[in-house]
Design a protein around this nucleic acid. Structure first.
Length: 619
DNA sequence: TTAGGGTTAG
């Protein structure tokens, strides 16, 4: 019998903390070995291989173990090769092409080898390969097990393969894994990613036992689809049922808070995190910054951002675009410069934030400088989004001709977003000619967006071209489009209150209208006259004034004034672009009632203090 | 008798 080589004698470069067994690897079976001896060798081999593979830290070390297996002639052995495939396909240092070559040598690959290969493909973002492999597995008559389905379903979710996913759901029942928690969670995730919320919730509702991952999959599915209110409701249910959310759940919740402007819930989540987590990872911290910024608490966001021990490109991006959204361009550019000093290489998304900061604040020269820097220093080809920012920047700065010229010179065909930027800039500059060119192109590319017609019609109205304003409105109505109903949300006494225009459904409605009356009375002393030019109704002037005074944003402001004291901050989220009248009205209210009023409209944040707005009247 | 689900931010 050939003496078994001891591991270090075979130059295996595996760092080991414990001494390895003296017979770590069996010798190559000689042709004269008895079958009994062969079986013995294989058994010993099987015992020794897993710990050796576990200790591999790089491909080089793995190849040495593989070489030993080849030397022993075990490459076709289901169990040995299966272990090699798993290690090579799933480790960070592994290689799928190498794993494939081992897999192909196996005489009779079992479910374990297939599962490992499928998972490896999913890990390497090759979901189609994983699905094809499952087909092969089926053709070879190999029974899938409970480990097969999670990665297979994940592969389907990557490519939103709903039909295939549903077929596989059938297989889950066929093979008897309908009650497996991991499989069920994977199904929730699959249906959520495919946007089929009925099936997604159906799987969850039918589960006898759930886990934090089940809730997390359900909650993130809702958040991903923009069902933020439902996401927060489910989060409440999860808490009521006694589940303790983890970081991944809370990131989805924070993202919903950010979209809804639900600062109070966001703050509760922050508190929970501080009380329950030892330290917060960079994703959670970035989500918190994003939540604070998007809920209008930009100072809190900035403080948290500066406290972050580790930042990545996402963190910088959230902060830069967040500051831009608040019109704090100088601060945004300072953070960008810090980022460069820290050695981060900016990408195209960062530059969208930088350019939009310049555009929000009318920094024309800086905008041009960063646009050049992006191309020349950082070798980033401008995308249509960057051109959109530049059009916005030039247009708002009054350079509409230059903006038109840039659109003509763009290397790609301008899309509706670019034309919408130009239309909006033309509105700011009150340039009807430019607005007509932009809207003509815009209505060709995207004729179903009611707010574009409203914008053009408002511009005509501002310029007293009533007939054209009416024509634009008729065109909108004829195309079956309705103006999206406006609403405003305001958080008062830890509760979010929603108002629509002319709302009288609030329990405190009487007091709210009394407050409106008082507000108007004081506003008149400051010279306020209602600006009815944007009221798109065939009614007389008095009726227009009545409509205007009960815009949702004013009702929300009135409720907040009733319940807050001088010096406090009122936060309002509104779904449409703020009308001119609400803008001037809120500026004066901030001064008369000594409140900071932060309004997030469809595009920007407006910080009203002492009679001025952070947008400097460009929005 | 080796492995699995929720990973979330611009």
């Amino acid at each position: 019998m050939i003496k078994a080589p001891v591991l270090h004698q075979t130059h295996l470069l595996i760092p080991h903390e414990e001494p390895l067994p003296s017979s770590s690897l069996s010798p190559s079976p000689s042709p004269s070995s008895t079958s009994l001896h062969g079986i013995e060798c294989k058994t010993r081999e099987q015992e020794c291989l897993p710990p050796l593979l576990q200790r591999c830290k790089c491909m080089e070390e793995f190849k040495q173990v593989h070489a030993q297996v080849l030397k022993l002639g075990f490459e076709a052995n289901t169990r040995c090769a299966g272990g090699l495939v798993a290690a090579c396909a799933l480790s960070d240092w592994g290689s799928m092409s190498y794993a494939c070559s081992i897999f192909e040598q196996i005489d009779e690959p079992d479910a374990f080898a297939y599962n490992s290969m499928m998972r490896g493909h999913v890990k390497d973002c090759e979901p189609e390969e994983a699905i094809l492999l499952y087909n092969k597995m089926q053709h070879r008559g190999i029974q899938p097990d409970n480990y097969t389905f999670p990665s297979l379903l994940k592969a389907c979710s990557y490519v939103s393969a709903l039909q295939e996913g549903m077929q596989i759901h059938g297989h889950v029942f066929k093979y008897g894994f309908g009650d497996d928690l991991f499989v069920q969670n994977s199904l929730i995730n699959l249906y959520g990613k495919c946007g089929d919320m009925k099936l997604c919730c159906g799987v969850f509702d039918q589960m006898d036992h759930t886990s934090v991952a089940s809730w997390s999959a359900l909650i993130s599915s809702h958040a991903r689809l923009g069902l933020w209110g439902e996401c927060l409701r489910l989060f409440e249910d999860m808490n009521c049922e006694g589940w303790r959310p983890d970081e991944s759940t809370l990131v989805s919740v924070l993202s919903s808070c950010a979209h809804l402007g639900a600062l109070h819930v966001g703050r509760c989540v922050h508190n929970f995190l501080l009380r329950n987590m030892k330290e917060l990872n960079v994703i959670v911290q970035t989500s918190l910054v994003d939540m604070y910024v998007k809920c209008g608490a930009v100072k809190n966001g900035l403080t948290l951002f500066h406290q972050m021990a580790r930042k990545n490109l996402f963190s910088y991006s959230v902060m830069i675009s967040g500051l831009a959204l608040h019109g704090l361009a100088r601060e945004a550019l300072r953070i960008f410069s810090d980022m460069l000093e820290e050695g981060f290489e900016p990408d195209d998304v960062i530059y969208v934030g930088v350019l939009s900061a310049c555009s929000h604040a009318g920094l024309l020269d800086e905008g041009h400088r960063y646009f050049d820097m992006m191309r020349n220093e950082h070798r980033i080809e401008p995308t249509i989004q960057h051109y959109g920012c530049m059009v916005d920047l030039m247009g708002r700065a009054g350079r509409l001709d230059d903006a038109h010229e840039l659109i003509r010179r763009m290397p790609m065909k301008p899309n509706s977003i670019v034309w919408r930027c130009l239309l909006s800039a033309s509105k700011v500059c009150q340039n009807i000619e430019s607005a007509e060119v932009a809207s003509r192109e815009l209505f060709k590319l995207d004729p179903h967006n009611a707010s574009d017609y409203v914008l053009l019609s408002n511009l005509y109205a501002e310029c007293q071209r009533w007939e054209d304003a009416a024509k634009t409105r008729t065109k909108m109505v004829n195309r079956g489009l309705n103006q999206v109903p406006g609403f405003s949300l305001v958080e008062v006494k830890k509760k979010v209150h929603k108002f629509v225009s002319q709302d009288k459904t609030h329990p405190e409605s009487e007091a709210i209208y009394e407050m409106i009356h008082q507000m108007e009375w004081q506003l008149r002393f400051e010279g306020y006259r209602p600006d009815t030019s944007q009221v798109l109704l065939d009614v007389d002037e008095e009726e227009k004034k009545l409509r205007l005074r009960a815009h949702s944003q004013k009702l929300a402001t009135a409720l907040a004034l009733i319940h807050t004291c001088q010096g406090s901050t009122i936060r309002i989220v509104t779904n449409l672009r703020m009308c001119n009248d609400c803008h001037i009205y809120t500026k004066l209210i901030s001064m008369i009632f000594e409140r900071t009023i932060v309004v997030r409209d469809r595009n920007h944040f407006h910080h009203f203090t002492n009679g001025t707005c952070s947008c400097r009247d460009y929005w």
